[in-house]
Nucleic acid binder design. Sequence first.
RNA 1: GGUCCCUUCGUCUAUCGGUUAGGACAUCUGGUUUUCAACCAGGAAAGAGGGGUUCAACUCCCCUAGGGACUACCA
Length: 469
Amino acid sequence: MGIVTRFAPSPTGYLHIGGARTALFNWLYARANGGKFLLRIEDTDRARSTDAATDAIFEGMRWLGLDWDGDAVSQFERRERHAEVAHAMLNTGHAYKCYATRAEIDAFRATDLGKHGSFQSPWRDADSATAPDAPYVIRLKAPREGTTSVEDQVQGTVTWKNATFDDMILLRSDAIPTYMLAVVVDDHDMGVTHVIRGDDHLINAGRQSLIYTAMGWKIPVFAHIPLIFGADGKKLSKRHGATGAQEYRAMGYLAEAMRNYLARLGWSHGNDELFSTDQAIEWFDLSGINKAPARFDFKKLDNVSKYHIENAPDEVLIAGIIDFIASQDREPMSEGDLGKLKQNLPILREKTKKLNDLLDKAQFLLASRPFIPDENEAKNINSVFICILKRLTPALATVRSWSKEDLETLFRNFAETENVGLGKIAQPMKVVLSGSTKAPSTFDMMVALGKEETLARMNDVVLRTASPE
RNA sequence: GGUCCCUUCGUCUAUCGGUUAGGACAUCUGGUUUUCAACCAGGAAAGAGGGGUUCAACUCCCCUAGGGACUACCA
């Protein structure tokens, strides 16, 4: 039998990074086993669900490259079917109509019994002849005796006393199904074989298996993965930096790097740290998922990101850059600029952690001279260096060839005759050539720029500093 | 309060009864380098606590402590 997984977010905001990881695990598991990965939007809460949030989820999923099979399912649109199942359970005696009002439920909760246990409806065993002509909800007639167990693939066997389960509402008084009913019906109808979701649903697995059993349906395999926390061990929230998947896109991380980092958070394949998505698919298994919650660590993410920026295929990197620029609401890069970027990718990607850093380094190619360094960078170009620069210009004419090796040799010799360290010349030269120290290696830039342009930029600085206002 | 889950270096993790408890990030030291958000080498760094079971426990069981989830006509 083919494996079917699903990701089922509720559209109340954006794609949360924790949700993104849940989606990734489901996606990885399906792809690893030649199965299907489905997407369902849990929008039965009409008050909180918005189309904008649904679009945000789609966008986040697409950015992460988590493609789903078929069309996304709207849970709300399947409400007729959910109601149908609720009524089927009514007919088989697994559910009952409860006419208790809000006031009655509140009153029950105020009692000693109500403070410690869940609501016990007086309608559970009532004679239907006594039913009033009033709105009602359909409640599950949960078993009061015995236990219910779930064989969780991550948490192991988990058992509850049935007495701890309440008669949960299946169909609200406005005939809209609750989440608890809808998930079960949808997962069953969609043929979901493996439910991989957040730890916060562990108890729901017990409650939901009651519905499966009542309907005589096969219970799917459950795997409840631990949540992601912030660096301080608290639930991941805004003050930890970023909670939305898209924010990571805007920060300049490659989707491939996010997949790598997120997969490694709570899942492991021996000591493998840096890997491609294809490798993750090959290796992924539920048995590799850790039971304990993990903390989000930006330092490590940056390290993973650096690896992927340095090693991604050219076309992937370029696509990532184009996507990053779009995420900033910036003008798309011109074909010409893109061409320059492509040609110089090796020197731009080296030692680069994020895409915005890469773009910073690319300024020497993209911006036009003369460069005006900011106050801080300008400190590199002092009067002593200006004098050196003036002597360097004629010296440069003697270079054997305009290659990295020869330029470096020339610089070393020149530095020796000037009696200064190479760094004293090469570092300020970075600023001369690019207006910043956030730039590729000096010699790489010189080669990329060519002799004429290099000399012109050097001259810019000499001219600018020759006539101080 | 009740039910359930979790607990190995600062962080992410390996280990599936017998290891000097391994790796990665971060950190520290030294080296190197255009004095770097680079690189190389080395160091420090962990089984929450207490009971069992066993020849042997990080690994299995129990208790305690700490953390978390759920406890809605939310999902």
